[in-house]
């Protein structure tokens, strides 16, 4: 009886799903092991990402096991009524292809315009820091403010909101050059992306700097500068302006974004 002979079915959906799940596991493992995870999300999510990888594994195995299977006698052609076509996998494939094919890069200077520099925004972005100023006493004592990755966002906010208190202070900081429209020739902003959760919420934080040959440095150039904080006025507001005394061109840091510590 030919009916008893086992028919085997190749399930194209299961094949595709298994391949995509394995692709995601490979992506997570690759990002975690090469330390690239922080290009995308705040380091505090690293543990969750590892859990996600372990959750994906059994799912991938089960999908892989059902790629080839014996058809039950009652089964008609598989998925004859399925409304899903293979197109439904396209979004996943796009993500995987983009992730693996494009270089692991950092948000570049192009995004500053669409994000809006902190000093240009109407409302201060960091309502978080609203008037709680944990660093202020410490900063006042320092003879020179050395801006660290950890305190970057705090310090820039301090300078932005209370420029008078820091007038004539020496400062040393690192960032990339960006010029908002209508920046005078002798000025540029020194900027870094501040990431609260993931790069999707990255906000460019910067401080205006003054340098005679500012025009010699292109947007996106990374600099470590030393200078003195001064006060300038812009649209009736007092704003901080760093008069650069010395500077050094540097390579993009390995951790280009700054992650404010969790509260």
């Amino acid at each position: 009886m030919c009916k008893l002979k086992a028919r085997y079915i190749l399930d194209a959906h299961a094949l595709m799903r298994a391949a995509i799940l394995l692709g995601f596991i490979a992506l997570l493992a690759w990002l975690v092991n090469t330390g690239q995870l922080t290009l995308y999300i705040h380091p505090r999510f690293a543990g969750l990402i590892e859990i996600a990888g372990w959750l994906l594994l059994p799912m991938a195995v089960l999908q892989a096991l059902s790629i080839v299977r014996a058809a039950s006698p009652f089964e008609q052609r598989p998925h004859a009524h399925s409304h899903n076509s293979q197109w439904t996998y396209l979004p996943f494939l796009i993500v995987l292809i983009l992730a693996f094919a494009l270089p692991g890069n950092t948000l570049n200077v192009n995004m500053v315009n669409s994000k809006g520099l902190n000093s240009q925004l109407a409302a201060p972005p960091a309502t978080t820091y609203e008037m709680s100023r944990p660093l202020a006493p410490q900063l006042r004592q320092m003879s020179r403010i050395d801006v660290t990755d950890r305190d970057y966002a705090e310090i820039v906010n301090e300078l932005q909101f209370f420029p008078q208190e820091y007038a004539e202070k020496k400062i040393r900081m690192t960032g990339f050059v960006f010029r908002p429209p209508e920046t005078p020739k002798s000025q540029f902003s020194l900027v870094r992306y501040v990431v609260m959760c993931c790069t999707a919420d990255a906000l460019p934080y910067g401080i205006l700097c003054e340098l005679e040959d500012a025009a010699g440095y292109q947007d996106g150039t990374w600099l470590t500068i030393e200078g003195v904080v001064q006060n300038a006025t812009s649209e009736d507001k007092t704003i901080p302006l760093i008069k650069i005394t010395s500077l050094q061109q540097v390579a993009e840091p390995e951790a280009p974004y700054v992650f404010p510590p969790s509260q």
């Binding site: 999510f45 993500v95 983009l98 993931c198």
Partner: peptide
């Protein structure tokens, strides 16, 4: 970068 960061963060 933005696409991947949203996907990665939501994945778990």
């Amino acid at each position: 970068i933005i696409l991947l960061s949203i996907v990665l963060e939501a994945l778990p």
